[in-house]
Design a protein around this nucleic acid. Structure first.
Lengths: 211, 211
DNA sequence: CGGTGTGAAGAGCTTCACAGCA
DNA sequence: TGCTGTGAAGCTCTTCACACCG
């Protein structure tokens, strides 16, 4: 498949084709009228724009279950990320290989970051250690941090932090699950009301509709 | 602090106070004019609306590093989630306790879900196993799935799936990181141009501005 | 003809500004 | 007086619709 139309891509992605074309147009005019987009060229342009064509050395601090899971995660390599080092505060972990990479002690943190030109750090430590680790990362030159610890990190201007809270997604599911149950109950109540009397459902469910 | 104003909450959250009041108003009129919101009552109402006051039994399928990390994750219990069971396909794992819960074999999946009235399942298996596990969960009565496996799951209507891709957040950081670098380079180029000749930067950077 | 690129219309979300109530 | 709740204005993002080009 050498070319693809905005209509096809939009159907595959579940969005409107006009939106897709408009979004692409911000990257430049890479399509051909009457034909569509050259797949290979488009992939390259999007990859370049997203930074996938670069090599991003990353350090992971805190090699517990989560840190190990991240180190083993295959998705990183394919998106331009390279795990430059695994760092843990436990001296017993030092030297132990995880995902084929030997764990290094926290003492080495500054040197590792400097030697590898690391600008992105991942924090997978317990909550108590996160802020301190964060400060050391920033002081050593890291300007983007992905935080898995359940704490809000404070950082100086110019440093980006993204927080991943594994329970938030569950909470969103639970929210919708609750809605499903509520709607059933409401539908049932309406049915009852229709069958029995003129009284409707108690109407206490507010009109909230999040993503 | 028994009450709090929309202004205070907005400042803490980094949003506009009018937006906060409007959002709250969708849940009902829980504030008092001239005073603010009763903290305890507000917390309760928001918790109830979000479903945090309910008990949600959850099963985690696939007890590798990630599954173990999830099982150990403290944030679940405090948000109304209860890990009803850990399930793995490896018979060697069966009976082994993870986070104090004995791992059970996949054979038990249907029974566990039925016995515990589970409606939310977490998939932390390798990509290859995910779709099959998903189908068994759905057949057994699960209607919400949180998918950590790097695969797109297909499910029947009425089943919610949320996919967590651990590398996407990194990619967003890398994107901004690239922008930072690009802006520096551009600023430098502009400085050069100003200093040397009339020729500007090559102007190939398109005007994209994602979240 | 077929499909992109885009001005214009439309929808939804955010902010303003203030009436109204404790 | 002080702060909520909310109509209206403003803004951004999405979709429509079509000129234009290969």
């Amino acid at each position: 498949m050498p070319t693809v139309s905005s209509e096809e891509l939009a159907a595959a992605a579940g969005v409107n084709s006009a939106k897709l074309r408009k979004d692409f147009s911000y990257l430049g005019s890479y399509g051909t009228r009457g034909v569509g987009y050259d797949v290979e060229y488009l992939v390259y342009q999007i990859s370049r724009e997203l930074g996938l064509t670069q090599d991003w050395p990353v350090v992971i601090v805190g090699i517990g279950n989560l840190g190990a899971a991240l180190a083993n995660y295959g998705g990183f390599a394919s998106r331009g990320f390279r795990v430059a080092a695994l760092i843990d505060a436990d001296p017993a972990m030092a030297g132990k290989p995880v995902a084929g990479i030997p764990v290094q002690h926290t003492d080495e943190l500054e040197k590792i970051i400097d030697d590898n030109g690391v600008s992105i750090g991942v924090i997978a430590t317990p909550a108590g250690a996160a802020q301190q680790v964060c400060e050391r990362l920033v002081a050593a030159g890291v300007t983007s941090i992905l935080n898995f610890a359940p704490t809000v990190l404070s950082v100086p201007d110019g440093v980006d932090v993204r927080k991943v809270d594994l329970s938030i997604e569950l909470q969103i599911l639970a929210f919708h699950e609750q809605r499903k149950a509520g709607e059933e109950a409401e539908a049932q109540a309406v049915a009852e009301a229709t069958k029995d009397s003129g009284k409707g459902p108690d109407g206490d469910v507010p009109a909230v509709m999040p993503a």
